[in-house]
Nucleic acid binder design. Structure first.
Lengths: 203, 203
DNA sequence: ACCTGAACACCGTTCAAGT
DNA sequence: ACCTGAACACCGTTCAAGT
């Protein structure tokens, strides 16, 4: 955040500084392929210093991903209307907030889902990601109770919702479907389809 | 494919060999972060040789991504039933083939969608990816004509379909939702929701 | 025309040594 | 307790030189 005066880190909170610097770089760069040495450079420490706080780069990436999921959950909670006019209203607002989080933080979002198998990050997504999943589950459960949502296995409905929203977010980050030229019409149309698939036709 | 005899590449088709070797490595490894030097090593040439056929690593990645989209389109065409029993049948089979392609080729699939902004690959997804998109459009168009699909803007419906299937595929690759323990039930349930959202309730 | 070897400017990671 | 500097084994990329 603030420009550190040129005196070297005597004893400051390097752990936090490394995380903040990395988050800044995630904001600037488009990919999450930043280098640990560059983080150390910007933080004003030697390239070996971060190893006193993180066992390796993957551990830092995992920490960043966790922070990302926390922020995403906060964004979704903030976007959820306290007195929703309708199921459609509620789902649409949450879904838009989700996609907006992704397009606002493309590198961080990509990092969050590059975790687990195959990529650098080694966190188990299950824990944090399911917290996001739970936001969906809660809405759907309430909708089923109120009768505005079809009585179907709720996990499947939530899977459809998460899958669709995650997919739209990824495509939007890639500049596909949702872009400046196209606008958010495809997203809204996709949400309509989802809501029609979830919604109870009897109402 | 075949073990090259130990004599060095006199004049063989190194370009193809590099691509084949890279595809092999994509099959073995889980991420697409293979190194160009390792490709050269396995192909039995010096680490500088590939530069005679590709300007840089990104160019090779772009080529691989294009091959991936071609193969995906072939998989989808092959999976599309010639005489579908119903819209649901057709959509389900294509969608399952799509997800299966992703889980069978996780590294390649990730690479395909790591393109464009932010990541290493520099291809414009629009061209090839839209060929996949077109498979969906064709099914939906036919469904709307036959009356089995709601008359809604077809781009929005295709966006919903692509987004959901892409999202489910990504989550499946990450071991979320669709995994060995859980099975493909969430995928099928999500497809049901999609089909209910797309399908004409009048039929 | 196609490939090699050495070289350059980087990485991630380790470790003895400094304060 | 926390950080540095040098070192190791790698990268991607370039380029003169080889066949």
């Amino acid at each position: 955040m603030q420009d550190a005066p040129s005196r070297p880190y005597h004893h400051g909170d390097l752990r936090r500084a490394v995380i903040e610097t990395a988050l800044d770089m995630l904001r600037d760069e488009k990919g999450w392929q930043f280098t640990l040495r560059e983080v150390a450079r910007r933080a004003g420490v030697s390239h070996a210093a971060p190893y006193k706080h993180f066992p390796d780069k993957a551990a830092l990436l995992a920490e960043l991903a966790m922070i990302g999921f926390d922020r995403l959950r906060e964004s979704l909670s903030a976007a959820k209307p306290t007195a929703p006019k309708s199921l459609r209203d509620e789902l649409t607002k949450v879904a838009r907030a989700y996609v907006a989080f992704g397009t606002d933080n493309p590198a961080l979002y990509r990092l969050m889902y590059s975790a687990e198998e195959g990529q650098a990050v080694g966190i188990h997504l299950d824990e944090r990601a399911l917290a996001v999943f739970d936001v969906l589950l809660e809405i759907l459960r309430r909708g089923q109770d109120a009768g505005s949502i079809r009585k179907r296995p709720i996990e499947g409905q939530a899977a459809a919702g998460w899958g669709l929203i995650h997919g739209m977010t990824m495509l939007a980050i890639d500049g596909l479907l949702v872009s400046e030229k196209v606008g958010s019409a495809p997203l809204d149309a996709a949400l309509s389809t989802l809501v029609e698939g979830l919604g109870n036709p009897a109402t």
